[in-house]
Design a binder for these strands. Structure first.
Lengths: 161, 161
DNA sequence: TTTTATTATTGGTCCAATACCAAACAATTT
DNA sequence: AAATTGTTTGGTATTGGACCAATAATAAAA
């Protein structure tokens, strides 16, 4: 019996292959959903519901529901019972979210917070910091490539240099 | 007819006159409640429901309910139909909230954000930044007294110098 | 390959924070 | 005292998040 594969590349991705960063405000997703996307990007491929639940310490049913939300918004592709993975759009957002976390952590570390403290603190408020602010902070710090909790890429903010 | 005055000083305040800053994490109140306290501190005395509603752009009934919450938690004293004012505890928290906002705004302005941008940005995430982080940032900046959107006091963080 | 175990999803319920509306109530003004 | 203004109550709604029990699908074992 035929089964449509949601993960198969289609001509759609060729049509929709442009960078969408111009439209990102950074405030589109709730803190918890940002966590989902960052984790999905870290794993990289197809991710199981249980893995997400374990990582984020939530019930699997909660994960399924959140994943459905993210799927409806176009950040992930989800095949029930098989797994979930980022869409191209999801990857761009997740990449920004990781960068934002790293830039804010690095910034905080410059004010006497330890790496650990900076990381924990940034995680608490990062979802409410706009991309426009991040681009400015990143530029003012000279577009650093290394933070206290990971590397920083500049695909999205170099244009603001 | 006798009416008990909730705003009258009683021996309670003499007993409870110590600084409670040691116990503040800065994460006790939701963003909206932080706004209420900051506004109440700005006005200073007895504040009417309508004034709060106008300032925060919410229905008066919403204000009444939020004020009841804040009253239950001991941040304000509320006499129905008369007005609301900060308790001593509320003043300490409100003072910290204002300082936190000003310190974060000042910090952001050091990364190329305009005063206006810094203020707006800080307002969005400040409720999720801990007092411990603020104390460190404040210390690292040399305990500035002037920010881009107000003066900064140091009653609560000088001990960390 | 049929049973068993594991994993995932659905449907239900719940909570916190925030908000509005209409009705009732209190205070103030006339 | 009546009318107006301001405030509160009670009800309802929404958004985001969470859990549980029951069902369904997949994978593992016999």
């Amino acid at each position: 019996m035929f089964k449509f594969n949601l993960f198969q590349k289609t001509y759609i991705s060729l049509v929709n292959n442009g960078c969408v960063m111009q439209e990102i405000t950074g405030l589109e997703l709730s803190p918890k959903k940002v966590e989902y996307l960052k984790f999905l990007l870290k794993i990289g491929g197809l991710v199981k519901t249980t893995d997400i639940s374990t990582e984020l310490n939530v019930d699997p049913s909660t994960t399924t529901k959140t994943i459905n939300d993210l799927s409806d918004s176009g950040y992930v592709d989800h095949v029930p019972y098989r797994g979930v993975r980022l869409t191209d759009k999801g990857k761009e957002y997740a990449g920004f979210f990781v960068n934002r976390h790293n830039i804010l952590s690095l910034m905080l570390s410059h004010y006497g917070l330890s790496s650990e403290e900076a990381c924990v603190e940034a995680a608490r408020f990062e979802a409410f910091v706009s991309k426009s602010a991040i681009d400015k902070i990143c530029g003012a710090m000279g577009h650093p490539t290394v933070s206290v909790c990971g590397r920083i890429g500049h695909d999205s903010c170099r244009s603001d240099v």
